[in-house]
Amino acid sequence: MPAETNLPTNVEAATPEGLERSRAARAALKQVETEPGAKKPDPIVIADNITRTFGGLTAVDVEHVEIQRGVITALIGPNGAGKTTFFNLLTGFDRPDTGSWSFNGTSLNKVPAYKVARMGMVRTFQLTKVLAKLTVLENMRVGATRQRGESFFSAMFAPLWRAEEEANTEKANHLLERFLLIKKREDFAGELSGGQRKLLEMARALMADPELVMLDEPMAGVNPALKQSLLGHVKSLRDEGRTVLFVEHDMDMVRDISDWVIVMAQGKVIAEGPPDSVMGDQRVIDAYLGAHHDTALTFEEEERILAEAEKELEEEAESND
């Protein structure tokens, strides 16, 4: 489908200052040591001692983590590592048992989710949440923050909010165009396919002009051709001067667009660094595949392990007698 691939992939919305800032931010990352909890030169989010348990299970236990401003940071880790839970905690959708975290220097402890979003930290959901009985365009319009027509008293007087609504519609159209949903504009969001819903949710989050965009598996279920152009869009967010934090399982995408990678496993941050160094990190490979996966057992070793096991069993049997 050529229509999908010859999209303007990049920098259409980039501003010179944004570009400059993101270049500087990326350059600054080069000095950062690749240790879990590494200090960043210009962090937008700082989290300390965040823990969250569900019953006996510790889903998140992050000692210290910083997200660099103006770059694309990937958060990766095996299933159940606590990535989504960490997202929920940062954005106020869930409360941690302990810990403190801040956005742009403002502490977010006890700040409700809607206020977090208004501060410029907007997230999407792993399981998409589209507003099914609203049209795609209406979904987009809801995304714009601080609308005058959203207060009860001015709502009844259309002239007060019509101009703003038109501006929002224009912005929505522009984004829908970028995300290839323009033809679906008037359809109910509930009629979209799974991948289209992902796209709509991402586009809707951008309606709020967020400073930090947090995407939970944005590419899950999106077809490969479209994925390429979406990667371009995510990069262009950075080039506009925004910060992107995303969760993703697709390692090609992570390698392709992220400037920094944070790896979580069993609730902890186990490694950090630029994509290439992280993917070669033994701790990361262990986390994903389990320890000792790479040393193929030789025949003698197998024999030895078997013998040991047998001996153990025998000993056990004897002690039981």
Partner: peptide, 17 residues
Amino acid sequence: RVLKSIREDEDAVRSLG
């Protein structure tokens, strides 16, 4: 529109501020 959105999915509306 916000009311209708709340009917559809509260969390989505919260995430939009």
